[in-house]
């Protein structure tokens, strides 16, 4: 068995997505009043278009990956947590945590934590600068949105 190339892998994944999409498109309810084109036509066309395109992709010879050459091959090997992929994953987790904690913690606290935490994690060591800049930006934005523009932001545990 020959190994599949990148495009072929992608094509298979996309074909699966397309199949699932088509299956869902068939479950869209029909509108009780007669319509020349009902809600389901467009999704069905899109699903099949994606299916056909993934077939084309399967047979397209892969170009060198756009990102591959620029990902630094000798990025810090050191501790596992500071490898490039670990950084991305930690950031994704941190942002998700921010989203979930925004309301209970309040806007100012959650934003400060995320911003300072990530900056330190990315390896910037002048903590006073980090703190000052973050505080300035977060408070400035908060005051502008809540006081000037009258947008309600969650206050959380802080008194404002």
């Amino acid at each position: 068995m020959t190994r599949l190339n990148t495009n072929q892998w992608l094509a298979l994944v996309l074909a699966l997505v397309a199949a699932a999409y088509i299956a869902m498109a068939w479950q869209i309810a029909t509108f009780p009043l007669p319509r020349p084109v009902d809600s389901d036509l467009f999704p069905k066309v899109l699903g099949f278009a994606l299916l056909i395109l993934s077939a084309f992709l399967f047979f397209e010879p892969p170009a060198p990956l756009a990102g591959a050459d620029t990902i630094d091959p000798d990025a810090p090997r050191g501790p596992l947590l500071s490898t490039p992929w670990a950084r991305v994953i930690v950031t994704v987790v941190a942002v998700a945590a921010y989203a979930l904690l925004l309301v209970p913690l309040g806007f100012v606290l959650a934003s400060m934590l995320l911003c300072v935490g990530l900056t330190v994690y990315y390896g910037y060591r002048r903590h006073s600068v980090t703190l000052a800049v973050t505080l300035g930006v977060v408070l400035g934005l908060y005051l502008m949105m809540t006081r000037v523009m009258d947008v309600y932001l969650p206050t959380g545990v802080l008194p404002f």
Binding site: V103, G106, P154, T155, G156, V157, L158, P159, F160
Partner: peptide, 12 residues
Amino acid sequence: MKTSLKRLTLLA
């Protein structure tokens, strides 16, 4: 939510 409202009250 409860606490946040208490704080809002202070402003009001």
